[in-house]
Design a protein around this nucleic acid. Structure first.
Length: 587
RNA sequence: GGGGGCGUGGUGAAGUCUGGAGUUCACGCCGGCCUGUCAAGCCGGAGGUCGCGGGUUCAAAUCCCGUCGUCCCCGCCA
């Protein structure tokens, strides 16, 4: 790493023999002026080394301030007895300075460049370049690069070709809102930024690539969350002549590589599999956090023929009674009622709580409605021990399970990310029920169903060959076996309610491509930012995205998005609506 | 679109509930002292439109209304 400006990096000094002349360059992390001797902690990308200055020889050292960028010439020497610093990788050595050059001074800092002080995130983003100098963020940048590398190597060693796809593409109305880019050469027309490279990677399969991958930047113009940004990165992959099992093993290889690169101390992860139905049934979500148990139990049999109308009514309508043992939470009456409120917020008609007492009885607002056998059945089914809080809900299978599942996460989710629990969820339904009771496709229309026939005759129960990867309760990515037969694709469009005309107009070119000997193919996309956030223990993907945006879509550092010159708009054949301009004037 | 938290010298926090002088703590900044520190220490100093606007009040960082910013959640994310 030697260069013309410096001969060594800070960390290299450890391996040099006493008396070696070095020139180092970096930033002043700290300087401690003792009067007759002055210590400078010099930081570069490799680490920190202590430089010792005699101010009578180098008086300019007294002018050094935090984060000045400096070059130091000096001699390597062991630290005098008793002055080693075990907290520093270079703590046994130091550099006695013979020369000092300020390469660039620093203004007083807007915040401390260390991990000891919490700093408001907006300020960090405004000065992101200083944020990168903090050890946490520097480590996250390195971790991200290490993971990218590891995954790239894993894919390459499996014979995948890294191929780029365009970022200026045609808009499609499905899915998320598109980010649009106006065309100058064809005024009034717009490119869209890709929500994923989906169609292009399928075209690569038609093109005989057989194994494709890419770190793809994707864009979805929807509201922000701690795990969602307008632009984000996916490890996107697709292969031909393979199926779901092969896809999963390739994804696992890349995930194992990334995990090993970022979390070398973690044991190699396993990848258990649940069907979608099992996941909802046992965990009340299609992205279960399996780091903890607290599974849901079906109590419908216990309440068969119950006198309690709250439960009996639900069962009579084909619903279920489900329960969960939340353990000894030690909640007060108002705390327990708070859970009921929370359940109602989540859309439950009601929630019953019960606290197990000595002798197998239950303390609960509904206890008086339950028979002895029902109480015993609940206690037994939920393995309730004294003081355990039991939550019971009755209603349709899916929504009841999901409400309990949300409470399960509220009450049981472990803090921190030390444990890594990966999980496949397979056999998603083709359709999801909408609020008004209709059916809407759960995936993009190129996803292969297990059976087109079933899609037609029993759409509610039809399963698709789609699968998700879950980590610690976060959806890391999804994939599917694609449709490669144009006839099947046409049938699926029809079943999804896309007419022949519409399909031809919007996807005609794609359907044509499928008619030229398309191989069976399948693929996946890993949400790389989410993976990194969990691997490094960050609570938001903003901490692993170098230059993220705030919830309002603003970059506080550069000020994007920004207004543009009238002339730029004219070239594009655009104008800003008068009421928007009027609002600008009012500013 | 909806619900909630937060906004106080450059930074982070306390003060707000229960109105009474811009008060306090830590870091940073400026000046001074100091030859083995490493979150150095000691002494002194500067630095504020309590996000913004309006209202209530003798009096507002504090109460009320609005607004902006930020974060979390619901909706949204095929």
């Amino acid at each position: 790493m030697a260069g013309t400006v410096r001969t060594h990096r800070a960390l290299d000094v450890v391996d040099l023999s006493e008396g070696t002349e070095v020139t180092l360059a970096g930033w002043v992390a700290r300087s401690r002026d003792m009067g007759g001797i002055l210590f400078v902690d010099l930081r570069d990308a490799s680490g920190v080394i202590q430089v010792v200055v005699d101010p009578s020889e180098l008086p300019e050292a007294e002018q050094l301030r935090m984060e000045y960028c400096v070059a130091v010439t000096g001699t390597v020497r062991p630290r005098p007895g008793g002055t080693s610093n075990p907290d520093l990788a270079t703590g046994d050595v130091e550099v006695g300075a013979t020369g000092l050059e300020v390469l660039s001074p620093s203004d007083p800092l807007p915040f401390m460049v260390d991990d000891r002080h919490d700093v408001d995130e907006l300020t960090r983003l405004e000065y992101r370049y200083l944020d990168f100098r903090r050890p946490d963020m520097a480590a996250r940048l390195r971790a991200r690069a290490a993971a990218t590398n590891a995954m790239r190597q894993a894919m390459a060693s499996l014979g995948f070709l890294e191929i780029e796809t365009p970022t200026l593409i045609a808009s499609t109305p499905e899915g998320a809102r598109d980010m649009l880019v106006p065309s100058r050469l064809r005024q009034g027309s717009f490119y869209a930024l890709p929500q994923s490279p989906q169609i292009f990677k399928q075209l690569l399969m038609v093109g005989g690539v057989e194994r494709y991958f890419q770190f793809a930047r994707c864009y979805r113009d929807e509201d922000f969350r701690s795990d969602r940004q307008l632009e984000f990165t996916q490890l996107d992959l697709e292969g031909a002549f393979w199926d779901e099992e092969d896809v999963r093993s390739a994804v696992e290889a890349s995930i194992v590589a990334a995990t090993a690169a970022v979390r070398p101390e973690a044991s190699a992860p396993g990848f258990p599999t649940l069907t979608w139905r099992e996941a909802i049934d046992r965990y009340g979500t299609d992205k279960p956090d399996v780091r903890f148990d607290m599974e849901l139990t079906d109590l419908s049999e216990v309440f068969e023929g119950t006198e309690f109308r709250g439960f009996g009514g639900a069962l009579a309508e084909g619903g279920v009674v489900k329960g969960m043992n939340a353990g000894a939470l030690g909640l007060s009456r108002s705390g327990l009622d708070g859970l009921v409120e929370r359940a109602k917020e989540l859309g439950a008609a009601g929630l019953a709580w019960a606290v197990a007492e000595d002798g197998g009885s239950l303390r609960s607002p509904i206890a008086k409605f339950l028979s002895e056998a029902e109480v015993a059945g609940v206690v037994e089914s939920l393995s309730a021990e004294t003081d355990d809080v039991l939550l019971l809900i009755a209603g349709p299978w899916r929504s009841s399970s999901e409400i309990l599942g949300q409470l399960r996460v509220d009450l049981g989710k472990p803090k921190g990310h030390d444990e890594l629990a990966y999980l496949w969820v397979v056999d998603f339904p083709v359709f999801e029920e909408t609020d008004d009771g209709g059916l809407a496709p759960a995936h993009h229309p190129f996803t292969a169903p297990h059976s087109v026939e079933e899609m037609r005759t029993d759409p509610v129960n039809a399963l698709s060959r789609a699968y998700d990867l879950v980590l610690n309760g976060t959806e890391l990515g999804s994939g599917s076996v694609r449709i490669h037969d144009p006839a099947v694709q046409a049938q699926v469009f029809e079943t999804l309610g896309i007419s022949d005309d519409e399909a031809e107009r919007r996807f005609g070119w794609f359907l044509r491509a499928l008619r030229y000997g398309t191989p069976p193919h399948a693929g996946f996309a890993v949400g790389f930012d989410r993976l990194m956030a969990i691997l490094v223990g960050a609570s938001s993907i903003r901490d692993v995205i170098p230059f993220p945006k705030t919830q309002r879509g603003v970059d506080p550092l550069t000020g994007s998005p920004s207004r543009v010159e009238e002339a730029q708009l004219e070239e594009l054949g655009l104008d800003v609506r008068p009421e928007i301009k009027a609002a600008w004037e009012a500013d």
